[in-house]
């Protein structure tokens, strides 16, 4: 298993605000890792550190290199989409392809053209004239045509309608991702990506709250839907959270005893969003 990103004790403060506080994590090849947190949790700061776009304290290796000193070598193998609409507005689509073709040694122009031909993006349009969704499609086309080892996406679908968002992740999963590629994505629309993620990292106020693979989340966390009369019994077992849904009480347990829980009611793997809320609340409590 190849480790692409290795961070230990990663810290960064903006004035008195700690954007990252002793964060340690690893990202391995062939995974799709979701970095999930509320606004201002430090997601973007963590990505910027990985991409060598900001200074930080602590140790960080990306592809074995230090992003502070060797960022332009790292960028040979790392691609990123920072946000929607950062492509230069004055550039025409065709010239954008020309340019990346000249500037990126791993860019395969025909792949980008092929992808764009399946969209409504026209080659001689100016980027400034494209809709937000089309700009994202163009950016995706550029990125997918680059033979990169790590793709970093920071809120890539922000401000897009649901059709574009679905299409974006579908394309990424079907046409781009394979065991040699790795994707690191931040979003706060967790529901949209939870079924494509292999790993999740929860981050809150600069600290990591959870760092698990999706498989082990299923082993570790369990959601039990309990009839009101058994609620007190469930509470005795120390749930992470409790909420009411359709007249039943829904409890979330971490490392619960499966036998005991099965007695209480219907068990299932919790959604990432619910788990996230529970973990953040647990930390605040």
């Amino acid at each position: 298993m190849t480790t692409l990103v290795k961070a230990s004790g990663l810290s960064k403060s903006y004035g008195t605000v700690k954007a990252l506080d002793q964060a340690s994590f690893e990202i391995h090849q062939g995974r799709i890792v979701g970095l999930i947190g509320p606004n201002g949790a430090g997601k973007t700061t963590a990505l910027k550190a990985v991409l060598g776009l900001t200074s930080f304290e602590g140790k960080l290796e990306v592809l074995g290199l230090d992003p502070r000193r060797e960022r332009h070598r790292i960028m040979q193998d790392v691609c990123f989409i920072a946000d929607v609409a950062v492509l230069p507005k004055w550039l025409r689509v065709r010239k954008a392809l020309d340019l990346v073709d000249r500037l990126h040694p791993r860019f395969e122009r025909s792949r980008a053209e092929d992808f764009l031909s399946r969209t409504t993006v026209r080659m001689d349009s100016k980027i400034g004239q494209l809709s937000k969704g089309m700009v994202t499609q163009l950016h995706l086309a550029l990125v997918m045509a680059i033979e990169a080892r790590l793709l970093v996406l920071d809120e890539p679908t922000l401000g897009l309608d649901i059709l574009f968002r679905k299409e974006f992740y579908k394309t990424l999963l079907n046409d781009y991702f394979d065991e040699n590629r790795t994707i690191l994505v931040t979003t706060h629309q967790v529901e949209e990506i939870e079924n494509i993620l292999t790993d999740v990292i929860f981050i809150d106020r600069g600290r990591l709250v959870l760092d698990e693979s999706m498989d082990s989340i299923a082993d570790r966390f369990v959601e039990v839907s309990v009839k009101p009369d058994r609620a007190e019994a469930a509470r005795q077992l120390g749930p992470l959270s409790e909420q009411e849904m359709f007249g039943r009480r829904v409890f979330l347990f971490e490392n619960g005893n499966a036998e005991q829980l099965r007695d209480l009611g219907e068990m299932r793997t919790p959604g990432i969003a619910d788990l996230f809320v529970a973990k953040i609340k647990e930390r605040s409590a």
Partner: peptide, 14 residues
């Protein structure tokens, strides 16, 4: 216009 983030996503030294 934040397009610097696009240029910085290419393998170019500053």
């Amino acid at each position: 216009d934040r397009s610097i983030l696009f240029w910085k996503s290419l393998p170019l030294s500053d």
